[in-house]
Nucleic acid binder design. Structure first.
Lengths: 339, 339
DNA sequence: TTGAAAGCGCTACCAC
DNA sequence: GTGGTAGCGCTTTCAA
């Protein structure tokens, strides 16, 4: 059986209070008692119970991370960054894949609460933002990453999605594209909406427009992207876009697959830009031009904000916006030309 | 503040014992009291504390998953399968990326123990297997996935790595390759060792051999794979392999990149087979022929075994071996020919 | 300095 | 049926 604080105390001939003190480095203990207790802990291979400690008002040293799908490389990379930064400070990470379903979000929110996590990092969308209210009322620290929850006072770390969308558009415009289209995520995904806005904004500044049926909403799988891209690319030549802006790398892969299936060459017949710059972007055929999010810095920052909130409550909520970057690979070129 | 069992009891005018009983569906309670209590719980939005419950000898409903790196798609996909199956049964998942470093493994093992997780799923290698002993002595349920811990009586779920290696070799032999090479993982990775063994075995059965410098050990990143593949592919023509078996998809991507850098065509100049069939295999250029592991069934099975172990202890340890499958895409062909 | 004791929220046993 | 109560392992006053 596991050794408890009582075992240590008995073995060392002191009170449990003494043991507790040396563990927490509080109170006054003579050096020799301290040493003795430490020795006994070692000998018994004593592992203090976080559970018991947490019950006494201390922390659980556990954080929750809600994302749509941990098997999606983007979120897996986020998770790794978050895990590392948390681990640095002694925290563990519980992952929660929501599939963007409110019921799952709710379930996980409740579960994490019952498990008394010290804080939650939310990187998933949800239709009903009210779900977060109860948590905030109970002042459970919550921070957002890669998603915004407007109207809610929450620390938030995002990349500048609007600017990212602009960058993609600028790239296409500079290349000379005239017929553009977008593969967006579900409209409830704020980051995707911003990217679309930025893209459209830049296009309009350049005197171009985007017809509605050239903006397709997908879920977040490559299959979805492929299906929508197929429809786009099968339009009559005069309407068929020569450039596709995809709101994430997964969708871009779907677009690439669609192009391949239709025997369209990339980038000669159609250019594709993705978003996120996950590992996927570097291995596609051709390698994907994409807008990079600074995933690691974002993950680190969001943990820092959360831990900050953990100690000093009720400060100003920050909104940290990090700059995306256009990574030009080989999926983009001038329309109708070999690059 | 969060409502406690006392709040519910007071509000409902009953004892906490009564409340506890309705929560756990045990003991006898009159229907009306039951309904009343339920109503109060609802009203107070009562969330029972898993922490307190766990302290009383119950479970924490939390599982730990140790993998080398959650941002590696293979492990991310494993994690998703494990998460889902666990979630089904009310468990949460703590992810632990070890980077294959013993110190990190040890740290996480200790942390998970202090947090009283109900069980651990280990999908990472470690040099010193002794680290697991203390956990086993304390009879903390441990199961292995995609890794073996020989000499240790542990439930284990793996795919048949040896057979997987054989499949790769058979594929190459059937295609007519004569000069083969392997990109293996670190020798301490049992699964990789088995794959190499199977590969070599089949080769020898076909009357072929593999010289030592045609078997390279890498870590687990694409960069490593690329570096080693570069060396292999820069050998003089008479020694240069026409077929590369890579022990995972990441390494295969590195190989693909190496080939591209050297202006070698795949599969005309060099064929490449990967292992795992992660999402990466479907997006490479060209799409990767690979040996698929049944990731989802494996993840589900390992959770089942763990939960089984949770209830009835000390049963026979199972070793579940799942069958891999050759997925032929476009990175393999006959040597010197366009496929 | 040191330790006795009062909880933290919940479970389970036992007496009523 | 129902509720009192003794812990679970640890933290934290507060006396001594």
């Amino acid at each position: 059986m596991k050794a408890t604080i009582y075992d240590v105390a008995r073995e060392a001939g002191v009170s449990i209070a003494a043991v507790s003190q040396v563990m927490n480095g509080k109170g006054k203990i003579s050096e020799e008692r301290r040493a003795e207790i430490l020795k006994v802990m070692e000998k018994l291979n004593y592992q203090p119970s976080v559970i018991a400690s947490a019950l006494t008002g201390k922390k659980t040293y556990t954080l929750g991370l809600l994302v749509p799908d941990i098997s999606n490389p983007f979120f897996a990379e986020i998770a790794r960054a978050v895990e590392d930064q948390g681990h640095e400070m002694g925290y563990s990470l519980v992952i929660c894949s929501t599939d963007n379903k409110d019921e799952r979000v709710e379930r996980y929110l409740s579960l994490l609460q019952q498990k008394s996590v010290d804080g939650m990092i939310i990187g998933t969308g949800m239709d009903n933002k009210e779900m977060l209210k109860p948590l905030m009322d109970r002042s459970i620290p919550i921070v957002m990453i890669a998603r915004e929850m407007q109207d809610l006072a929450l620390h938030t770390v995002v990349c500048d999605d609007f600017v990212g969308g602009c960058m993609a558009a600028q790239h296409f415009v500079a290349l000379g594209h005239k017929r553009l289209a977008i593969l967006a995520e579900h409209t409830k995904v704020t980051s995707s909406r911003e990217r679309v806005k930025g893209f459209v904004h830049t296009l309009e500044e350049a005197g171009m427009t985007l017809s509605d049926h050239h903006v397709r909403n997908c879920r977040y799988t490559a299959e979805d992207g492929k299906r929508e891209a197929l429809e786009l690319l099968e339009l009559p030549p005069a309407e068929r876009p020569t450039a596709l802006f995809c709101c994430n790398d997964m969708l871009a892969i779907g677009a690439l697959q669609a192009a391949k299936q239709l025997k369209l060459r990339v980038p000669e017949d159609v250019s594709v830009v993705g978003f996120d710059n996950t590992i996927l972007a570097s291995v596609t055929d051709p390698p994907l031009t994409t807008i990079a999010q600074p995933i690691e810095p974002m993950g680190k920052k969001v943990v820092d904000l959360l831990l900050l909130e953990l100690k000093k409550k009720s400060q100003d909520k920050q909104r940290v916006v990090m700059r995306p970057e256009l990574i030009v690979r080989q999926s983009t070129g001038a329309p109708g030309h070999v690059e």
